[in-house]
Design a protein around this nucleic acid. Structure first.
Length: 735
DNA sequence: GTTCTAGAAC
DNA sequence: GTTCTAGAAC
């Protein structure tokens, strides 16, 4: 990896002795990127005299001006001290004055903390007591605004040395480098650490690469494990948590065009082999058999078998058998660690974890069940109770984890799937008395229910690598339909059934026997619905605006009107006036100019409304399959504070992949001549807050939540201008 | 797109 | 009993 460049710079041999000059290090980074922490960590240990020039505190402990920073830096350097310039410095112009400030008697360095936007936002929102008082809800908007101005440093700006840090590991290496820089040392000049020069692309990549380094995971170990990543599944040598957890991210850093690291991931324990005493050989056969069956159906989603023990017998059996069957080790692997701390302690992000539970679905008992209920807090018990009172063996139940759960906020777990396997332990209820015919059947069922449940979650989540998965999965759905339809027993056991089955069946029903054009891509137009008489209102408005009230702007190309049933405080429609352009599906390259016009008109109105109320946030986009005829762009405020927002379809049509951001539609049409469309199935997906992504059981509860949720918007929405908001009072912070 | 309402869910 | 959803009609 190119990141290694940075690390080598941190080693002693990289320093050149006896040429000590004061150094000015211009830090570059959004709020929350860790600039102040960087300075603190270096200054705490360094033997070089450092002065930190921080614009947030330079005015007698309060925010000051850039001029004060320049003066402060100049005088410290004159005294022979080295300085950190701790301000955002995101664009060339902002930092240029510092470069010009000094001559060759000072080494000019810059360290760019070019971390994922998402990380900076979450840090700056969460922090308290920030020197510049940039924290809480407003921070998200400010960070995003700043990042739009980001220009990575170039040597021709006048630096002797540039270090670009794109992840936490890079940052730590840079801290080590500067900490080790003694008073008379000099660091080699040059450009260190940037992997991609295109900032826009980089953000996308960082989304995949966002990763915490597992504790104690040294570079040496990374290198060692890197050499044989391909043979991960076959490895039988002494593995420990550090080695396995170091290895996994490397292995996952290819595939899905870039990486599967951010792909939906289910972490599951071996079912029934602990407390229920199920034979390990037989259990490992079943695990591998079921994984093999599901792993390709799941597209890019990953399955991870987890065990707490370093010398786990079941893990080694499964690894060996999975290797024999050549199961893709990027999509299925084993992991040693605590299933409730996979991210915080192991650096492995699993959005779904399986719980080997008891039939009462109650906390306690011991093992995994006790650990998961305890780590998740009481909200898991409540959420579980809302789903079912009990579980029969061989079944699983999906429980969306409330956002208030520490497992949600700390580990990124959005769902827990409770699963109950067969019991072979005479000291536990319902022992099968060594009947392995029945036991194996139930264990197979348990894994099927578990993986079906996971598939249902994957299907309803927005994931960048999802398209391929959906197509594959839909194919499977039809194949399996026949074998499920006559299952009366399953109906009787509905209470204990995985709730996947219900959704799954309705999903099958929705697809119908002749699915035809219901894919993600453009349809051929063969199976389009005819417009009802009630669907003509917008068409008539576009053709004859003079006949209609409620029009707020009219031109040859577009008509703008207030939506008759606004779903937010402000909700406008920008109507195309081209006849025959009924919906997004009809849009072709020739309409690109029109799309851009519609976007700029929409944006203009959003900005006008923002000038009247700067607390609003707007999003501009199209419905994949509109109900009303005539192409129309929604310009809608993201409060969704409206009595007209009444049902799931309303919510999901603006808050699922069904809503196609205008900026993305324009990109897609200009590149491929058509926009990507999602079919109406996504409208029945679960209800999740558009800000914190928490799940809610019904519309009233969702609305109660969104009325007060102040979480930052997901990073996806904060990119590429998908959200439009006011710079407001924060505009002059720190710059 | 909304309205109405049966019946499911609580 | 009340709340909420979802399907049909428009």
């Amino acid at each position: 990896m190119e990141a290694m460049e940075i690390d080598s710079a941190g080693k002693d041999e990289a320093k050149e002795e006896g040429k000590g000059k004061p150094v000015m290090v211009i830090l570059i980074g959004a709020p929350g990127s860790g600039k102040s922490t960087f300075c603190d960590l270096v200054m705490r240990v360094s033997t070089r005299p450092w002065v930190r020039i921080c614009q947030d505190t330079i005015g007698n402990g309060k925010a000051g001006t850039k001029k004060q920073c320049l003066t402060g830096a100049a005088s410290a350097l004159k005294e022979g001290k080295s300085v950190f310039i701790d301000r955002c410095n995101l664009d060339r112009e902002q930092r240029g004055d510092f470069v010009k400030l000094v001559g060759p008697e000072v080494e000019k360095h810059t360290v760019a903390l070019d971390l994922p936007a998402k990380l900076c936002i979450s840090r700056s929102v969460k922090r308290t007591g920030h020197e510049g008082n940039l924290q809480g809800g407003k921070a998200a908007a400010v960070v995003n605004r700043r990042l739009q101005k980001k220009e990575l440093p170039k040597l021709n700006e006048g630096y002797d040395r540039i270090t670009v840090c794109q992840d936490e590991k890079d940052v730590q290496a840079a801290i080590n480098t500067y900490t080790a820089l003694g008073p008379s040392d000099k660091l080699p000049p040059g450009f260190f650490g940037q992997k991609k020069s295109d900032a826009k692309v980089q953000l996308g990549i960082m989304k995949f690469l966002k990763k915490k380094d597992p504790p104690g995971c040294s570079d040496t170990m990374m290198n060692v494990s890197l050499e044989d990543t391909q043979s991960h599944a076959t490895k039988e040598k002494d593995s420990n948590q550090v080695l396995e957890s170091c290895e996994e991210p490397k292995m996952a850093s290819v595939g899905c065009s870039i990486s599967l690291e951010n792909a939906p991931t289910l972490a599951f324990p071996s079912i029934s082999t602990a407390d229920f005493h199920f034979n390990l050989e037989k259990a490992s056969d079943i695990i591998v058999e079921k994984v093999e069956e599901y792993v390709n159906k799941l597209g890019n989603a990953r399955l991870v078998l987890v065990d707490l023990s370093q010398n786990s017998k079941i893990l080694s059996l499964v690894r060996a058998k999975a290797a024999e069957k050549n199961i893709d080790s990027k999509k299925f692997f084993t992991f040693v660690g605590n299933i409730t701390k996979l991210y915080s302690e192991g650096g492995l992000h699993c959005n779904v974890i399986a719980n080997a539970t008891n039939w009462r679905l109650k906390p306690g008992g011991g093992g995994i069940n006790a650990a998961i209920f305890s780590a998740a807090g009481p909200t898991l018990e409540t959420a579980t109770k809302a789903k079912a009172e009990s579980l029969s063996s061989g079944k699983a139940i999906v429980v969306p984890l409330p956002s208030s759960s520490p497992l949600f906020s700390g580990e990124g777990v959005t769902h827990v799937i409770h699963v109950l396997g067969p019991n072979m332990n005479p000291q536990r209820p319902n022992c099968l008395d060594n009947d392995y015919v029945k036991g194996c059947k139930i264990l197979r069922e348990a894994y099927s229910s578990l993986f079906d449940g996971f598939a249902s979650i994957v299907r309803t989540q927005e994931e960048p690598c999802k398209d391929k998965f959906e197509k594959e999965f839909k194919g499977e759905v039809q194949l399996e339909q026949g074998s499920r339809s006559g299952d009366q027993k399953a109906k009787r056991e509905a209470v204990c059934e995985t709730d996947m089955n219900k959704k799954f069946k309705s999903f099958v029903k929705e697809l119908g026997p002749n699915v035809g054009s219901s894919g993600d891509g453009n349809t051929g137009g063969q199976s389009r619905k005819a417009w009802g008489s009630w669907a003509q209102a917008l068409y008539d408005t576009a053709m004859h605006p003079e006949r209609h009230k409620n029009i707020i702007e009219m031109s040859d190309d577009v008509v703008v009107l207030n939506d008759l049933y606004p779903k937010g405080q402000k909700h406008l429609l920008v109507l195309a006036r081209v006849k025959g352009l009924d919906r997004l599906e009809d849009v072709k390259k020739e309409h690109l100019t029109l799309l851009k016009t519609m976007h700029s008109v929409g944006l203009k109105w959003a900005e006008k409304l923002l000038s009247e109320n700067n607390s609003l946030t707007f999003r501009l986009g199209y419905h994949s399959v509109p109900s009303l005829r005539q192409l129309h762009l929604h310009v809608i405020s993201q409060d969704f504070d409206s009595n007209h927002l009444k049902n799931k379809k309303h919510w999901n049509s603006f808050n699922s992949p069904f809503f196609r951001d205008s900026v993305d539609v324009i990109d897609e049409v200009s590149q491929n001549g058509k926009a990507i469309l999602k079919d109406e199935n996504v409208l029945s997906m679960e209800l999740r807050c558009h800000r914190c992504r928490s799940a809610h059981p019904n519309i009233p509860r969702l609305k109660a939540h969104i009325s007060s949720c102040q979480a930052p918007f997901p990073a996806f929405l904060l990119q590429n201008g998908r959200l439009v908001f006011s710079e407001g009072k924060d505009a002059n912070h720190g710059i």
